[in-house]
């Protein structure tokens, strides 16, 4: 019997802000993601993408609702959840004082990858992400593109079945962004369940198997690009997005 890698049910997060009072950052979100699938969360800045993904990665506690990763509930078994998860975002940085090889070894170890196989795994990752020439140079001395590759290798160091990419291309130049998308597509073909958030329409169009449009914390529509086109009668994703977000009468933030 196979479990759904990612599933949420009425997942919500409410913040209290001293000056604004109650803020519903995520409002009753239901999503699923299957093996070999890229599910895209598409929304403007501040729509609730990052908060949703942080709840899935157990960094934030949901106010209400539930979420499961590989059958583990985020509140009940946060450590099991994280063992099965690779999380990548523009803000997840690397330790500057250690080398890529040490980085991979460290993250494989803390994520409970079988100890005896760690060295082999690290070698494999270095080969796969072509890190050979700088595997033993300290991270602080690497270029942005090199760091990005090490970062992705770090994310999959323990070979997790679920991967979360939270606006991964936000700080990248065009070439690096393209390379990153290729790597993500490759990971999909390996059978990973991938959650991907972005506010860039073209990125979602190219990469995602299914798209959830999120606005003011709520999912307005979910489906493949074709399904969304059919439902709205618009061709471009941008128009589809405006169609849904505009229906709510609140465009942008």
């Amino acid at each position: 019997m196979s479990v759904v890698p990612v599933r949420t049910e009425a997942l919500s997060k409410v913040f209290y802000d001293e000056s604004r009072g109650e803020v519903r950052a995520v409002d009753s979100v239901d999503i699923t993601c299957s093996p070999g699938e890229i599910f895209g969360l598409l929304g403007a800045n501040g729509a609730g993408k990052t908060t949703t993904l942080r709840m899935l990665s157990t960094v934030l506690r949901p106010t209400s609702g539930q979420a499961w990763l590989m059958g583990h509930e985020v509140r009940d078994a946060p450590e099991r959840v994280r063992e099965n998860l690779g999380f990548y975002s523009a803000s997840t940085a690397l330790y500057p004082k250690i080398t890529p090889r040490e980085t991979l070894r460290f993250f494989a170890r803390v994520n409970r990858y079988p100890r005896r196989r760690i060295e082999a795994r690290v070698d494999e990752l270095i080969e796969r992400f072509s890190l050979e020439s700088y595997a033993d140079t300290r991270v602080e001395k690497l270029s942005g593109g090199m760091k990005q590759k090490v970062s992705i290798a770090r994310t999959v160091a323990h070979d997790p079945p679920v991967l979360i990419f939270d606006e991964p291309t936000v700080a990248l130049d065009v070439l690096n962004a393209i390379e990153l998308r290729e790597i993500i597509a490759r990971l999909r073909s390996e059978g990973k369940a991938i959650l991907f958030s972005t506010h860039v329409m073209s990125e979602a169009e190219q990469l995602c198997d299914r798209i959830g449009i999120i606005h003011h914390g709520a999912i307005l529509a979910t489906g493949t690009l074709d399904q969304l086109r059919e439902a709205t009668g618009r061709h471009y994703l941008e128009e589809v997005f405006v169609h849904y977000a505009g229906m709510r009468g609140k465009i942008g933030t």
């Binding site: 994280r82 940085a93 994520n111 323990h158």
Partner: peptide, 14 residues
């Protein structure tokens, strides 16, 4: 500040 804490918090260490 560097963002490495975020990385660590999404790993399996408690």
């Amino acid at each position: 500040e560097r963002g490495t804490l975020a990385t660590l918090l999404t790993s399996a260490v408690s």
